[in-house]
């Protein structure tokens, strides 16, 4: 009886080991098939872009492409900056100071990802109730600091990493 039990145990161990190690292998094979859909090395390498902003007049903005998405670069007038900073933070769905959204000393330059945080449309400039941007897809309003004021968008437009040089 005990001999037979031993036999059963060893068999169980063998089967469990085979199944387990087999499953590990299947998992190891599935990962490459999933990971191949992630951005490839060429995509990852296109992480930076340079823009010449010397031609942008105060009050105007340009749009440039970065990683397949638009970047708004707006040169704000002193009046617009003032307007952005006069807002009561309690009125904002996603409270954030204008100072946090620009580089110190370069307050006139607003650089942000021109993508509505609701479902990814590109907002129209100089439209909407807050003198900023308006997303035509589902009616989100953004102010001159790119902060959401009204509509379904949950957060302010994103500020990418950027720096000024030359």
């Amino acid at each position: 009886m005990s001999k037979e039990e031993k036999k059963v145990n060893r068999r169980d161990f063998l089967f469990t080991a085979s199944y387990t190690i087999g499953a590990v292998g299947v998992g190891a094979v599935i990962w490459p098939m999933i990971d191949q859909m992630n951005p490839d090395k060429a995509q990852q390498a296109l992480a930076t872009t340079e823009v010449d902003i010397s031609q942008v007049e105060p009050g105007k903005s340009i749009t440039v492409l970065w990683r397949g998405k638009p970047i708004f670069v707006k040169r704000r007038t002193p009046g617009e900056i003032q307007e952005a900073r006069a807002v009561n933070l309690d009125d904002l769905p996603d409270p954030q100071n204008d100072e946090e959204r620009v580089k110190e000393g370069k307050d006139e330059w607003l650089v942000m990802l021109g993508v509505c945080t609701h479902l990814g449309c590109v907002p129209l400039k100089d439209k909407g109730d807050y003198n900023g941007w308006f997303c035509p897809c589902h009616g989100s309003h953004y102010d001159v600091s790119g902060r959401v004021r009204k509509g379904p968008a949950p957060t302010n437009m994103e500020i990418p990493k950027f720096e000024f040089f030359r």
């Binding site: 060893r10 068999r11 063998l14 089967f15 080991a17 085979s18 190690i21 087999g22 292998g25």
Partner: peptide, 11 residues
């Protein structure tokens, strides 16, 4: 894995 499966098969 081949070794394990071989032993399982024999069993």
């Amino acid at each position: 894995l081949t070794t394990l499966v071989y032993l399982s098969m024999k069993k």
